[in-house]
Amino acid sequence: MPDYKRLLIIDDDYDDSILFMNAVKEVDDTIVCYEARDGRQALEMLNNIDNPLPDFIFLDLRMPGYSGEKCLIEIKNRERLKNIPVIIYTTSKNVEESIQLKAMGACHFMTKPRNSAEIYYMVSIVLEEEWDSFKNKNILQ
């Protein structure tokens, strides 16, 4: 097992992805960031057994075509992928939507940060959690 963490960012906004990856490097420069432009591309990467799986997925909810919600459903329905923590980050602040997404398997629902300081804070919190406690458990139990 490598000494570094892998993080997949799924976001259709190139500028947001770059901002996010730069902030992640500030948190921990050993984290390897991968990116996908939409849910379809992300699933192609995740389902390729030659690619190492990420330790975390940050998933933008609002993407044209193959939405974040559809991608989350696919990830949580696949045996190989279902234990990867998925953090939804979006411009939405809809509490009902966050409850629904957590019931579908998302670990967190976070408002999309606007600057690198907010992303730094968000990533720091996520990396400090004890993720083993989420594996093979229903989050709402």
Rank of each mutant, 00 (worst) to 15 (best):
Y4V: 00
K5N: 04
R6S: 11
L7P: 04
I9L: 15
D13G: 00
D16M: 06
D16N: 14
I18G: 00
L19E: 08
L19N: 06
L19M: 15
N22A: 09
A23E: 09
V24L: 03
V27F: 09
D28G: 10
D28C: 10
D29Y: 07
I31P: 01
V32F: 06
C33I: 07
C33G: 04
Y34S: 08
Y34P: 00
R37Q: 10
R37A: 09
D38Q: 06
G39F: 08
Q41N: 09
A42I: 02
L43M: 15
L43S: 11
L46K: 02
N47R: 15
N48W: 05
I49T: 13
I49R: 12
L53I: 03
F56C: 00
I57C: 02
I57M: 09
I57H: 04
F58C: 14
F58M: 15
L59V: 08
L61S: 04
P64R: 02
G65I: 11
Y66W: 13
S67F: 02
G68F: 06
G68V: 05
K70I: 07
K70H: 10
C71F: 00
L72R: 08
I73G: 00
I73D: 11
E79C: 01
R80W: 01
R80V: 04
L81P: 00
L81C: 01
K82L: 05
K82Y: 10
N83W: 02
P85G: 11
K93S: 12
K93Q: 13
K93F: 00
N94A: 13
N94H: 12
S98F: 07
I99T: 12
Q100N: 10
K102W: 00
K102D: 00
K102G: 01
A103C: 08
G105R: 04
A106V: 06
A106T: 04
C107H: 06
C107S: 13
F109C: 08
F109Q: 02
M110I: 15
T111P: 00
K112D: 07
P113R: 02
E118L: 06
Y120G: 01
Y120K: 14
Y121E: 15
Y121W: 02
M122V: 03
V123L: 04
S124G: 14
S124R: 12
V126S: 03
E129Y: 15
E130I: 11
S133I: 11
K137N: 10
N138S: 08
I139K: 07
I139T: 03
